[in-house]
Amino acid sequence: MHKKVIQKYAVNLAGVVAVFLLILLLMGMGVVNNYMTGILIFTGINIIMAASLNLATGYLGQLVLGHAGFMAIGAYAAALFALNTEMPDLPTLVGGMAIGGAVAGLFGILIGIPALRLRGDYLGIVTLGFGEIIRIALLNLPFTGGAAGLRRIPKLVNFNILYVAVVLTITFLFLFVRSRHGRAIHSIKEDEIAAESVGIPTTFYKVYGFAVSAFLAGVGGSLFAFYQSILDPRKFTFMLSVEFFIIVVLGGMGSITGTILAALLLSFANEFLYSVENFRLVIYALLLITMMIFKPDGLLGTREFSLNGLLDRVKTLVGKSFPKSKR
């Protein structure tokens, strides 16, 4: 690999490790208490969910309103796997995540093949209907525990594991959207007809992107199951899908770092607005409307925050203010 590329990866890795160590340090000092750690973990799950939704909405350009359905599938699949096997913790966790992701991805393919033939808003409705069907199924199927849900799922996820999972997911997404496949997916959003005319098999890539998005949502769901240790089917409503969607829109459709930023912001806002819980959703709704009217691109638009770019900018600034003497 080129030396510069390695250097850039090193910078990003250093940044990720630094943030991790900082949070651990704050936890050790007691600044971040258990309650806040819990919030951080939920924020992490939200980041995975919203980032995976961003792949379908921001990069593939499809309106998906049933993301909570995929999350529910992943969560239930992982939980049922863990409840019906006797294995040490780590294989259970990894196996559960893999199975949760795989089952959700499979459903993504199943629903994607027929649904992705449709134009944007129809797809949104189909995914919405799909999410509702999943919810009703979870309430009525014999093996999902009905309205009582599933209980006593092993609690395998802590902050460290979740942080690693978020970093891996985000890294994967970054590499994926920049790969050949990712660029093909992006081209469909830009102009489907043009993409088709240069020989991109649009249906294949739509289903592909949609399935990857569903897979990651399933992984997010499995993490949720292993952290909560209780699953309630009433959690996975249309409103939950909308909440993920709001994160994506706020961060910017087509910006993964934007999604992270928005998820963090909304988590803080949630805590801040906790005392006025009833107003929270009204404020979100107004936020969504004003955002669409005045700044439809979201916080970051399609740009990405880049640590390397920041460093370069700092370097040029420093270079300007302290011009080096001749060597």
Binding site: L63, G120, F245, L281, M292
Partner: peptide, 24 residues
Amino acid sequence: NAPRISALITALGVSMFLQNTFRL
């Protein structure tokens, strides 16, 4: 004249707004 997805998201927002305002 905006992309259709923007209008659709706005519609979702209006829906949320009405529901939660009435709940309030």
